[in-house]
Simulated assay, not measured.
Amino acid sequence: MPGTNSDYYERRRQQCLQSADSAADAAVAKVHRNFAAHYRTAAKLAARQEVSGRAPNE
């Protein structure tokens, strides 16, 4: 069984944070952290939709 949308977004958030930590350039690290923040928001929204049983576009 595939993971949930919230699992995917959380996994991507973690990957972005790891990329930010390993980035040599501060500007690149900032971009990765910004993406991580967006993934955090998406994960929270997806988790709420999964609990309510609603599809993302409903």
Rank of each mutant, 00 (worst) to 15 (best):
R13I: 08
P56V: 07
H38M: 12
K44L: 01
S52R: 13
P2W: 10
A20V: 12
C16K: 04
Y9M: 03
D21H: 07
C16W: 00
A20T: 13
E10Q: 06
K44F: 03
R48E: 01
C16M: 14
Y39L: 07
A42R: 06
E58K: 14
R48T: 05
A23V: 11
S6C: 00
A47W: 00
A55R: 03
E10A: 07
S52I: 02
E58A: 15
S52K: 09
R12V: 07
D21L: 11
H38S: 14
E50K: 01
T41C: 01
V28K: 12
V28D: 15
S6L: 01
S22T: 10
R13C: 11
D7K: 04
A29L: 02
H32F: 12
K44T: 05
A55Q: 08
P56I: 13
A23C: 10
F35Q: 11
V31D: 15
G53M: 00
A55Y: 00
D21N: 14
A24N: 09
N5V: 05
A36Q: 09
A23P: 10
H38N: 10
F35G: 10
S19N: 10
A20I: 10
K44I: 05
R12W: 06
F35V: 07
R54F: 07
Y9I: 00
Q49R: 03
L45G: 02
R11D: 10
N57G: 06
R11T: 06
N5Q: 06
K30N: 07
A46Q: 04
A43I: 01
A46P: 03
R48A: 02
A46G: 01
E10G: 03
Q14C: 11
T4S: 08
Q14A: 12
A42K: 03
R54D: 13
A36E: 13
A37Y: 05
A55E: 11
R40C: 11
A26T: 03
S52H: 09
S6F: 02
D25P: 05
R33P: 09
R13T: 04
R12Y: 08
Y8P: 03
A24M: 08
Q49V: 04
A27I: 03
L45N: 06
Q49A: 02
H32S: 13
Q18W: 06
D7F: 05
E58S: 15
A20S: 14
G53K: 04
K30A: 06
D21T: 12
K44C: 00
A20W: 06
R40Q: 13
N5I: 09
A55S: 09
G3D: 15
R11S: 09
H32Q: 12
E50L: 00
A24K: 05
P2D: 12
A47C: 00
V28A: 15
G3L: 13
L45M: 01
A42M: 07
M1Y: 06
V28H: 09
Y39S: 07
K44N: 01
S6A: 02
C16T: 09
Q15M: 09
G3K: 13
Y9R: 04
S6E: 01
A55T: 08
G3H: 13
A47Y: 01
R11H: 11
P56L: 08
L45I: 05
